[in-house]
Design a binder for these strands. Structure first.
Lengths: 214, 214
DNA sequence: GTCTATACGAAGATAGAC
DNA sequence: GTCTATCTTCGTATAGAC
């Protein structure tokens, strides 16, 4: 019934892993469940990716590739006009990219967003570092642009706020905050357009706050 | 060597669980490791707490009890003066409490903070809800106070920003963001005073942002 | 090269004897 | 209250079919 099911075992493993890791997290997803859902054998993971963590690495890399590309493209676009990008433009470019992957990757979209959001908060620090390695290429450029837009702020503070932005976006994407209110109805797939706008509004103001009275 | 080691198996289990859950997370901490470190038998957990999750519940309850008490106390103190608390005062009361438990609980302090920060982002939604249930009592009062301080904002938006505050504080306490920068030296125990101030500055400005252009 | 069937050793939680 | 025995499930390794 799923006509778009990828032909190769390798691709099915990547898709299934992305989906299940997004749903249940890394540790809680067993290779047996995963391979069964992908219609493959347990050993296929080891063959194609070396290990469970190797599979995770591949999923992260694939997912981040498009996000990184899009972020750098937007950053270039902002700089192309000649004038310095504002804080709001930078925040919007960064956050909207996270939100837009939901549409960009077709039906895989929501899983990609949720998966990436989750990876940054996995209990295992090695898994989190996996994410850190993948954002690194974009990070430098965004930090520079933010620093230029906030010249009165010391670099330490800019870095702190950048990290807060990344973290809050991750929480937003993983829907982790929804469970914090017991009564709150949980969002199923993504987030409404207005929730993303709310996040951008909060971050734009937060990044422009006067420096902390150390 | 450890002269302050609690006498009862139950208390030793609570302390050890808090410490190990803080260090490695819930799923990654095996009952065998835990009970061995606590000088108890594997089955002791089942006897005292019913299950591994029952143990977690007890640890969460104990840890949240002091935080909740302190937060309500501060909120009352702010309201006692007669005038309406400002956004900054509310943010400071909420965030500083999270940071202050580090000192308040003696040598257990850093573990408590890290543990609580971690619980909110565990992959298992049931675990996250455990935390949600425990913050609930304070939540209503803080939401009311925030809404009073931000009368021009719709309740939805106030709730969104409150959740962002809780989430960002959790990230701060769990040090999850440190691994996102590969080169960054990891903080060992807690956070510097200035990092907490930075968080307060960012949140205070973020919460006072103009409403999102929905 | 791709993939499957199956086996292995370690670690998990729990039930029931004591 | 404690300990042990047991049963399950995990990730990985090996051998070979196509």
């Amino acid at each position: 019934m799923n006509t778009s099911r990828p032909a190769s075992t390798r691709d099915r493993l990547l898709d299934t892993a992305e989906r299940l890791f997004a749903e249940h997290g890394f540790a809680a997803t067993s290779l047996r469940t995963l391979t069964e859902a992908a219609g493959a054998n347990v050993a296929a993971v080891n063959y194609h990716f070396g290990s469970k963590e190797g599979l995770l690495r591949s999923v992260v890399e694939r997912a981040m590739a498009s996000v990184n590309g899009e972020r750098l493209r937007l950053l270039e676009e902002l700089g192309a006009s000649g004038r310095k990008p504002t804080v709001e433009e930078l925040v919007r470019a960064f956050v909207a990219t996270g939100a837009s992957i939901v549409e960009r990757s077709g039906e895989r979209g929501p899983a990609v967003a949720r998966f990436l959001g989750r990876v940054m908060f996995e209990p295992d620090p090695a898994v989190r570092r996996l994410f850190g390695t993948e954002v690194a290429p974009v990070e430098g450029q965004y930090l520079d642009a933010l620093q230029a837009a906030l010249p009165e702020l010391p670099p330490d503070e800019v870095a702190f706020r950048y990290r807060a932005m990344v973290g809050l976006l991750g929480l937003h994407q993983s829907n982790a905050l929804d469970d914090l209110h017991p009564g709150r109805p949980k969002t199923v797939a993504g987030h409404t357009r207005t929730e993303t706008d709310r996040l951008i509004a909060l971050l734009t103001a937060g990044l422009q706050a006067p420096p902390a009275a150390g």
